[in-house]
Measured scan of single mutants.
Amino acid sequence: MLDDRARMEAAKKEKVEQILAEFQLQEEDLKKVMRRMQKEMDRGLRLETHEEASVKMLPTYVRSTPEGSEVGDFLSLDLGGTNFRVMLVKVGEGEEGQWSVKTKHQMYSIPEDAMTGTAEMLFDYISECISDFLDKHQMKHKKLPLGFTFSFPVRHEDIDKGILLNWTKGFKASGAEGNNVVGLLRDAIKRRGDFEMDVVAMVNDTVATMISCYYEDHQCEVGMIVGTGCNACYMEEMQNVELVEGDEGRMCVNTEWGAFGDSGELDEFLLEYDRLVDESSANPGQQLYEKLIGGKYMGELVRLVLLRLVDENLLFHGEASEQLRTRGAFETRFVSQVESDTGDRKQIYNILSTLGLRPSTTDCDIVRRACESVSTRAAHMCSAGLAGVINRMRESRSEDVMRITVGVDGSVYKLHPSFKERFHASVRRLTPSCEITFIESEEGSGRGAALVSAVACKKACMLGQ
């Protein structure tokens, strides 16, 4: 009897593995994704193909990295998701002549009506938060230079001027797309009239992360975010950046690689679950690469896999709870928690219980395998993109072996128990001629924006502006 049951459990697990095998990517698959990513990057950089390229390769006008001589107080704003952060950054000489960066910050959550109302409502709310922060720190009387981390696709015309191309991540505030974001912020500050600010720089969160990590390690020339969304930036040779005049030196390019796949480059790798996630998203047909990796989508992918296993009578005796059938019910943090389970399955059992399920031991094991399959594919897909960037940098610099540091931020990278190990191992397999160091950014977005502002202020002083 026991043997029969054991055989049935083994057969069930084997069927589960057959279904989950769809998520496995072979090294040849990853090399294919990497080569296609490089081709799209090239198209994004070139003037004649930029418009139709899915990977936009947006110039950021960040050319210099901090040298350690900029000092002063800077205000930093960070808008990239449902939370908005205001930070005071003091850049100065530390002990023994070292450079020191001290920060104080406060988080504000953005109400739904500000995210989806008008641009005026959104930026009025942001300036209200700045006003509140300055009151708390008794700094209303000071006109501070301000660095703005704005983590949406922007076409820069200068370091302090950028046109919002399109909202992502659930934002829909009308009247912002096609307009200068810094102008919208300046107008809102003017409307309030109770404080003055000098907006000197606007950067993407990947750029802010790279600059913040450069402060720790001067070989950091790539910034990457794996959180709600997924994106990367890197220092490109100016001669390859056709959208900006000049051939000397390097400029940081914001790849906006989340949109890779929007022209069909990933079609052969998309599964039924991916198509369902895409169809029910706020932007169907867009940001397809990001939807395979980002935390906004990972939990939902797992939920759809679990429903398939229920329908195949391989999980929960073929019956799903009402909660499990509800879109968004299986949160991405559950994926991390399930994979963090120590082996007694308590954590998995508790999560499934909150979803109205009474799982068996085998159910718990199957749910864990589903989570591992989805998150491992995410790590491997992400590795193909980064390997594409790094191999490109090595080739354009004609280096036999390139040493490089990548600064990384984002909740999936930082909080998932195995993502970074799987990701690092896969990147290294795909970049055999590179020695890569990964560092995690601390308060990256805010500190990085302030350091970019410090560079901009120093330049302005040198130019006598």
Rank of each mutant, 00 (worst) to 15 (best):
T82E: 07
M87S: 05
I159G: 13
M41A: 01
E237C: 07
G227S: 03
A11V: 14
F148Y: 07
T168N: 14
I189P: 01
P153D: 14
C129A: 06
E236G: 01
M381N: 04
N254C: 03
V302H: 01
N240R: 02
M381V: 10
S453A: 09
I189H: 02
P432V: 14
T255P: 14
G81S: 15
R429K: 14
I130H: 02
L314N: 08
E96H: 13
A320W: 14
L164T: 13
R191E: 06
V244L: 09
E67S: 09
V182F: 14
T49S: 08
K190E: 05
M235C: 00
T431H: 11
A387G: 03
A449N: 15
R308W: 01
C252E: 00
D198E: 08
R7L: 13
G448I: 06
R394Y: 10
E421P: 12
T65R: 05
K13R: 08
T437E: 08
C382D: 08
V412D: 08
M393H: 11
S263Y: 09
A379M: 08
L58E: 06
R5E: 14
D73C: 01
N240F: 05
G285A: 14
G388K: 04
V408H: 06
A119T: 09
W167M: 13
G80C: 11
G448L: 09
W167T: 15
F133M: 08
V335Y: 11
N204V: 10
F74D: 00
D158I: 12
E290K: 15
H218L: 01
T49E: 04
T405G: 03
A119K: 13
Q219I: 15
L45E: 02
A320I: 15
S54Y: 05
I159N: 07
V452W: 09
K169Q: 14
E248Q: 10
A456K: 03
G223V: 01
S433D: 06
M393R: 12
I404Y: 05
K102G: 12
C457L: 13
E51M: 07
V89R: 01
G444F: 15
G448K: 12
C457F: 12
D158V: 14
V406C: 08
Y349N: 02
E245H: 07
D132I: 10
L146G: 12
E443F: 07
I225V: 03
Y413E: 07
I126V: 12
M57W: 00
